[in-house]
Amino acid sequence: MSQRISPYRYRHGLRDGLPIGLGYLSVSFGFGISAVGEGLRVLEALIISMTNLTSAGQVAGVTVIVAAGTLFEMILTQLVINLRYSLMGITLTQRLDARCTTPRRMLMSFGLTDEIFAVAVSKPYPVGPSYFYGLMTLPYIGWAGGTLLGALAGQILPTELRMSMGIMIYAMFVAIVLPPAKKEHGVALVVMLAAALSCCVRFLPFLQWISGGFSIIICAVIAAAVMAIVKPISEDPSDGDGGQAHEA
């Protein structure tokens, strides 16, 4: 925990958050279309985005809702998929200035996404609440606004166009995973293992009783645990931020 007062203001955060917000706008457009395509109403899709602010968790959450899964399944799914935020949160605490009191941290943590985390921890000086609020603002507006536009567009766009946009959110997942997989064998292997397991659950007759939400959890946990044993990351604890670690 750093006690230094951050030099960054709200407007600095706002500026740094602009590209994230624009990115979120287009991706959440895809989420809005997918969610309505799965049978959710426009307002329901919007509320999900306004209260969750997480792409992967929301897609999985819609899977659970549509399949009428149990609330236990919902909790477990969100817990596993969003577990990375816990590790990011721990890393973030090392980079916060003295003004980050507990109530402020409670507000800041709502805006902790992969991209916001990456920007916040990459600043040369510790960050304070005002900078972080600025950083959260445009991504939040972009995420909620894009979802609303996508959900509305999903009802009026021609079928072919709407259907084609269903691939957007998955294409974004590919874009997140491929560059690090190219650089690190461990990441490439965990991706291939998880994808293979997921396909097994989907296509092997004796595994088809496993529902969508649980399938994601089971496949991801097995793949990550196997790789954590086979190819653990470097021993240096300062690397343990869930995104910046390097091979030993």
């Binding site: 925990m1 992967a56 897609v59 999985a60 596993v80 998929i81 577990l83 990375r84 816990s86 590790l87 949160g89 721990i90 605490t93 090392q94 992969d114 998955y170 997942f173 590919v174 997140i176 995973v177 690090p180 997989a181 461990g186 990441v187 965990v190 991706v191 291939m192 293992l193 998880a194 994808a195 397991l197 997921s198 396909c199 989907r202 296509f203 399938s215 994601i216 496949c219 991801a220 946990v221 793949a223 990550a224 645990a225 790789m227 954590a228 044993i229 190819k231 653990p232 990351i233 021993e235 604890p237 300062s238 343990g240 869930g242 670690a245």
Partner: peptide, 28 residues
């Protein structure tokens, strides 16, 4: 939380889990 995770397995698991989740959600 004010400390860092020191277990190498836990840190590796946390490191890999986002990629594993994304892959399992994307395919098939």
């Amino acid at each position: 939380f004010r400390k860092k995770i020191t277990s190498r397995f836990a840190r590796s698991f946390f490191y890999y889990i986002p990629y594993a989740v994304l892959a399992a959600m994307t395919f098939p």
